[in-house]
Nucleic acid binder design. Structure first.
Lengths: 350, 350
DNA sequence: TTGTATGCGTTATCAA
DNA sequence: TTGATAACGCATACAA
């Protein structure tokens, strides 16, 4: 009899079934050369004993990979990253990989710590949304076969696959959309320059304006917005100034939420706006947005990583996913003259 | 010289450093009895070789646990579950556990398949939002020390820890709130009865009405709503009937989104509503909701699980987390007479 | 303070 | 078709 608190092993099953341990191994690996009645007997005693294969021990013997992917993002609660993980999982589940996840909270220390953890757990590949600024410590691991793909931000000091949505083109499209609707006074509410994606978006925005030969007053560029609250107050401040913009571009969804609230509070629904990032209620609120799909980002990242693990690719790739502008009304309002002849406070009744 | 594509092992480090493998092991485990200069030499050559500890191999030698928790939910992209995972991760990261995640897509087959995967990877504990209806297959593993906690729905055929928000009390509070504001004709829009949480919520709702001696016409109970779209059309249908409700309770956030859209379309903003589940724009839209925090649910679930693993608890517990009603306007509108003397279509101007 | 021998649960090799 | 034996990378027990 076996200790009931101990997990049964192949050896236990072998003993009970009266075969060698290797035969049990063959059965559980679907290897040939086991006679049907032995095969069945093994499965039966395994079932009886409540045997489970220890895949950690299995992956210790080298050629078999552990089939595990590690995913590191900044914030698991963020719906966009949650969607990305969901896309990753769709792929890994389909291709029989397990998923290890961790969050960095944008702390470089925690980032490295978690990646170290992944590596010590022998992951086959890593998907990372980086926050640190030096990834040289991954070089040796990559050389030894660990696949790595960076999402949304470039890697520094190493040359690896990268995938990102097209922040530049998306923001550019937003600005062009507002320009096409006659706006020339367009305010920008968003990220600080510290954030890579924020910079990309701001540059895209600016490139469209430059192309149209429009130079904006400095005050139209509000770039220290970190949450909906600061966005709201910054927007309110901007609207109070003498020559306010007739349109606003919010470079992320927290900023957009603040802008929408500010416009609401001031009954300033004549002011056009476009947001970056779609969100659940944007449709109902009639907010025009630059939409991009976290799920397909995750799907693509995982697909690329797993293809590399399958040896299907060897060159480094830098992939970009397109964005879509979804017009819902808020971005299509024409500029209203603000020269004082018209009452500036009149809200669009619908 | 070592094969550059092979991961260096403790033995490699030992050879290079001119010590025994055991000494290297001591260094990496912080064990005493290593002379400082040896300690340093080992660390140095390890660094030089790019050595990483293989924690899978380490956890093979029994007494040390693998320090891994598996989390299975239905949909990783759902913001509520994402928040829960985030709460779990907060705990596991703090207590030095890794996180394996998978989704079941509410498919019982995938549920068991993923839990089997967790167990074969020797997880110490499992947090599961179940969708299947028989969990007897976990019994042996629980008996052998794997900790398990079920979230939001009870386990069947096994006796394990359970944690859930108080669906019954939350829905009851919503109904009581509407009753307190004078409503007697309250419609219910939500889940099918197949879903445990849906049933709990409906019962809570009904208990409040029964207590107030109110019997609702059957048509007020709309329970086959699975997404925002079906909720919207069901709500529109309900409002078209001769004697429509003056208030609505949406038992989940997809249902709430549909209800809000329907009220918007019909300019029926005089109709009161309360939703279950808070969401990002509920505040801006002035929607009164029963709020509950996914993050703290995850935190509590993980804390309970890890405490059990630490041997701090042995009895089975069934925990319940409270909900909060957040009044934002939509739930505080008084009932409007619908006897035909007043124009039913008049919308509240604000 | 350090090292040797052995075992963890599995797979690989090679012989029977 | 089967089975003995030796790895895998590390930790435990015990000896030196």
């Amino acid at each position: 009899m076996i200790d009931p608190a101990r997990k049964p092993t192949m050896t236990d099953v072998a003993r009970e079934a009266g075969v060698s341990q290797k035969t049990v191994s063959r059965v559980f690996n679907g290897e040939p050369n086991v006679r049907p009645h032995i095969h069945e007997r093994v499965l039966h005693t395994a079932e009886e004993l409540g045997y489970r294969r220890n895949s950690l021990a299995a992956s210790l013997t080298s050629p078999t990979r552990g089939r595990t992917i590690g995913v590191l993002i900044e914030d698991l609660a963020d719906p966009f990253w949650a969607a990305m993980i969901s896309g990753v999982e769709e792929q890994t589940q389909a291709r029989n990989y397990s998923l290890l996840i961790a969050s960095s909270a944008e702390d470089p220390g925690r980032e490295q710590q978690n990646l170290d953890m992944f590596l010590s757990r022998q992951v086959d590949g890593i998907i990372v949304v980086p926050s640190s600024s030096d990834h040289a410590y991954l070089r040796a691991d990559i050389a030894r076969g660990t696949a790595v793909i960076f999402v949304d931000r470039p890697a520094t000091n190493i040359d690896v696959d990268t995938i990102s949505i097209d922040h530049f083109a998306g923001a550019r499209a937003a600005a062009q959309h507002l320009l096409a609707h006659g706006h020339t006074k367009i305010g920008y509410v968003g990220h600080t320059d510290q954030v890579f994606t924020g910079t990309q978006r701001r540059r895209g925005f600016e490139s469209a304006l430059e192309e149209a030969n429009i130079r904006l007053p400095k005050k139209y560029l509000v770039t220290n917005v970190t949450d909906a609250l600061s966005s709201e107050s910054a927007t309110l401040d901007l609207l109070k100034t003498p020559d306010p913009p007739t349109a606003l571009f919010a470079d992320n969804n927290r900023a957009a939420a603040g802008v929408v609230r500010a416009l609401n509070k001031r009954d300033a629904s004549h002011i056009a706006m476009v947001g970056f990032d779609d969100f659940e209620f944007a449709e109902m609120l009639g907010i025009t947005v630059i939409s991009h799909d976290g799920r397909s980002l995750g799907r693509s990242a995982a697909a690329r990583l797993l293809d590399r693990l399958d040896g299907q690719s060897h060159e480094i790739a830098h992939l970009t996913l397109p964005t879509t502008l979804i017009a819902r009304g808020s971005g299509e309002r024409p500029p209203e003259r603000t020269d004082g002849l018209l009452s500036a406070g009149v809200a669009d009744p619908r």
